[in-house]
Computed example of a mutant assay.
Amino acid sequence: MTLSHHVAVITSDEQALIVASDLADDLRRDSAQRDRERRLPLPELDVFSRSGLWGISVPKAYGGAGVSNVTLAKVIALIAEADGSLGQIPQNHFYALEVLRVNGSPEQQQRLYAEVLAGQRFGNALAELGTKTAHDRVTSLTRDGDGFRINGRKFYATGALYAQRIPTSVVDENGIQQLAFVPHDSTGLTVIDDWSGFGQRTTGSGSVVFDNVWVAAQDVIPFQSAFERPTTVGPLAQILHAAIDTGIARAAFEDALHFVRTKTRPWIDSGNDNATEDPLTLKSFGHLSIRLHAAEALLERSGEFLDRAQADSNAQTVAAASIAVAEVRALSTEISLAAGSTLFELAGSQATLAEHGLDRHWRNARVHTLHDPVRWKYHAVGNYYLNDENPPLRGTI
């Protein structure tokens, strides 16, 4: 896998949003076909990388744009609106960069940030199947000379298939979790394209196997400690998930509008000549649009909370950011599912024809929103406001 050439370096929030909007127009064009054929988006990812958008969270001190989280979330939402899978692929890339920001040494930051600005993509190998809970890890990191050996198997490794480095959660000999930034071409590392989810089909969220893989000590960053003190690693990951769902919701809503305007026939009992005049259809679109606009507003609001928490990370600011993000995660989950489903109720039977590919919105939303249960978002938010209880630091809220 070669690195992208002529990678742009974005220098401002405004430029990032313009580039993302233009890129989204291109990525939208064949998104239904890529989903239908499960065609891995390798050429699209190359264009995405060369756009410079994968480097926008690199701090200004290291040559990046250091964009706000408001901008970062908007960029991801724009890409996810164009293609839900392409919106999710960089999620763990930005997550790993946040771990690097809060826990990496200056040398690690300088070196890895430079790789990102040069076009490298980071994937992930975090989750494992078969453990007691979804957050338990058994993949091991053992000392070997001036480096380490990794042994284990990962799943849900979104982006690993396309990455130059695969940040991997590992448990060291003291039982402490670390994050190893493993080069994709390391001996003994195998990325398996075995993701069979019915949505987010081209995210490459399959398996990664580590068979005595060697990693340099300089490529291992503390991980567990990011959740033992107030940091923004957890809410940063969560705002990106919310942005993905919000983008999917917007795509489903826009496709519903277009289909009803151009193809849908009015129901006979409505007494109208056009589907766009049906009063019950109007009511349904009103209901969808209000919730979609609310999700988009909460996404922006949560980015502002996260910006404040990054600037001054303490128990109060991180808790407030986590709750603000939990609020948009709850609503973006519901509106993405509602928009993807209500689309068919409003557009009618024609909308179910395979050539339109409109089912991908609901499938993408249904699969992605299972990342962590929305019912616990409501619990955390209620507990915060009613009992002044801060959410857990482990990053799932």
Rank of each mutant, 00 (worst) to 15 (best):
E14Y: 04
V19H: 00
R28A: 09
R34K: 11
D35Y: 13
L40T: 01
L45K: 02
D46S: 14
V58T: 13
K60Q: 14
G64I: 06
E81C: 12
I89L: 07
H93R: 10
L100G: 02
G104V: 13
P106W: 13
L112A: 08
Y113Q: 02
Y113M: 11
A114Q: 12
A118R: 09
A125Q: 06
A127R: 06
S140D: 09
G147P: 06
R165T: 08
I166S: 00
S169D: 03
S169M: 12
N174Q: 12
Q178N: 10
L179I: 14
A180C: 13
S196G: 07
G206Q: 07
S207H: 14
V208P: 00
V209K: 11
D211N: 15
N212V: 11
D219M: 12
P230G: 04
V233W: 10
Q238F: 04
T246V: 15
V260R: 01
D273G: 15
G286I: 03
R291I: 04
L292E: 01
L299A: 06
F305S: 10
D307L: 06
Q310S: 07
Q316V: 13
F344D: 01
G348I: 11
L370R: 09
Y378C: 07
H379E: 11
H379I: 15
V381Y: 10
V381G: 01
G382A: 08
L386K: 12
D388P: 06
L393W: 12
G395F: 09
